[in-house]
Amino acid sequence: MSKANKNDKSRRKFLQNLGLAGVSAVGGTALLLQSCSDSKDSASGKKVKVLTQDNQLVEVDVANLKPSDKIKDLDYLQDRGREGIPGKKFVMVVDLAKCKNARKCMSACQNAHQLKPEMHHINVLEMNDPVRKTSYYMPKTCQHCDNPPCVSVCPVDATFKRQDGIVLIDNERCIGCRFCVAACPYSARTFNWTEPKDAKEFAEVTYDMELNVPQKKGTVTKCAFSADRLREGKLPYCVSACPNGVYYFGDSNEDLVTNGTTKKTVRLSELLEENAAYTLMPELGTKPSVYYLPPRQNKG
């Protein structure tokens, strides 16, 4: 008796559930269809030009734009980050004569890469010249060496050099041993000792190693030459933020560099030769991709 009752109850419950499921399915489909038709009808009339994957320029209505799924795909981002941009070799030229310690480069960088104020991918240092008894400001970033000591000491292949000359770090592989921090003669790397800035906001974001966001506690972080911006053909965050025309950035294969402030393009070889450019610690044989033009006393 009791068993039969129990069966009865469960059957009733099952039918009830089936009914509910059916209703919700129908309702859900209707809603879905509704949203589909909505998205087609509500053309905002505002059109933008976008570049498709096969390099064609098409005009699309803003309402029809959806963030690409690929950008959310970790595997795709990881492969893209390792691969680099073929045919390029990025270089930076820092004109010390123009730096007035505005520190806009630093804040632009920290905002882009989710860094706390005490963490730097680029840092403007005050340098004292004991001979002339003057001081000058020197922005110092990762030198993106052609012989990077940090890369050869990494035991897990987390930090690597790409075909376009950029030295990147992959948070997903980094085990936080900090060998690279010790190996870098330029002190270009920092360590996430604590939870990064706005960790909660970035919790759902897919990791893009070209931007190195979201940052992860217990991993090393470093300047990426704004590889994500370079992919879009834009100048790095620090370069375009500078108000004083300190930075030139470009492709040494083209022998052209562009100033981030004045947007003036000049020949790299001429710029380096005419201004007696130098690199930091050349005796170490690291072959940096960042060149410095010396500070001048009578200018700026």
Binding site: G250, D251, K263
Partner: peptide, 10 residues
């Protein structure tokens, strides 16, 4: 001009 990656050389 000659077009470069980030700008154009006059």
């Amino acid at each position: 001009f000659v077009k470069g990656t980030f700008g154009k050389l006059l």
